[in-house]
């Protein structure tokens, strides 16, 4: 039974309750790094690591954090972890850390990390918290990787820098869509993705803000 609930905690955030498409959490830093697949992957790994570690730490000391200052404590824990990740990236993956610019530091204010700490890790033991964090991190990564793949493939014809579709300049057939490398395409792709998910899982569609008046009744 316990294993089944753990599996449930892990798999529901992947698509059904995806933090990005259902709860609009954490998109702040998500879209800017999706112009190519390698930055999207780095960002995913960094965010999932921070999410899992912060969930573990907060869950470990959950009985000792005074309720009134819990937000400050959580932010401090997250910020310290982000500093560590940022230094590691700068030390071992300098090129990518330059391209990610300030967005690794912005994981600190990513609503997803604080959201999971506040709503789950604060009330649950370590193991479920870590599993929940990993599930949410992977759900976020999934969206990032999908958008990163589409944008790099159709914007440059490459994946991870390796040519996949041969461009016209190289004597191939593919004309790169430079719109894919600009900011608007990320919004369009994410909007279409949300539409696709909500069209499949129709219970997630938002209710009408205003019900239109019934025409036949009005005519009578």
């Amino acid at each position: 039974m316990a294993r089944r609930t753990l599996r449930h905690i892990f798999f529901t955030p992947l698509i059904r309750e995806n933090p990005v498409t259902l709860q609009i959490l954490g998109i702040c830093s998500a879209l800017a790094v999706t112009t190519s697949l390698d930055t999207a992957l780095t960002m995913s790994v960094a965010l999932t690591t921070v999410l899992v570690l912060s969930a573990a730490i907060i869950s470990l000391i959950r009985r000792h954090i005074p309720v009134s200052i819990r937000l400050i404590v959580q932010i401090l824990i997250v910020a310290s972890l982000v500093i560590v990740i940022d230094q590691v990236l700068q030390a071992y993956f300098f090129d990518i850390s330059q391209r990610l610019s300030v967005f690794v530091s912005l994981i600190t204010t990513n609503c997803l990390v604080l959201g999971r700490a506040e709503s789950f890790a604060r009330h649950n033991p370590v193991l479920p918290s870590v599993v929940d964090a990993a599930g949410n991190g992977l759900g976020y990564s999934l969206i990032l990787v999908v958008i990163g793949t589409l944008r790099e493939l159709f914007g440059k014809g490459t994946l991870m820098g390796v040519p996949v579709l041969r461009t016209v300049e190289d004597g191939g057939w593919f004309t790169p869509l430079s719109l894919m490398l600009l900011a608007p395409s990320a919004f369009f792709l994410l909007g279409l993705l949300v539409w696709a998910i909500r069209a499949t899982l129709s219970e997630q569609a938002e209710p009408l803000a205003h019900t239109p008046p019934d025409r036949r009744e009005a005519a009578e």
Partner: peptide
């Protein structure tokens, strides 16, 4: 008041609109 497809209501439409605004700002 617009009659959007059910899946597009709310968040989906907001993303597409933001995309168009972003296109305008570029």
């Amino acid at each position: 008041y617009a009659d959007l497809p059910a899946g597009l209501r709310g968040l989906g439409a907001a993303f597409l609109l933001t995309g168009m605004l972003s296109l305008g700002f570029s």
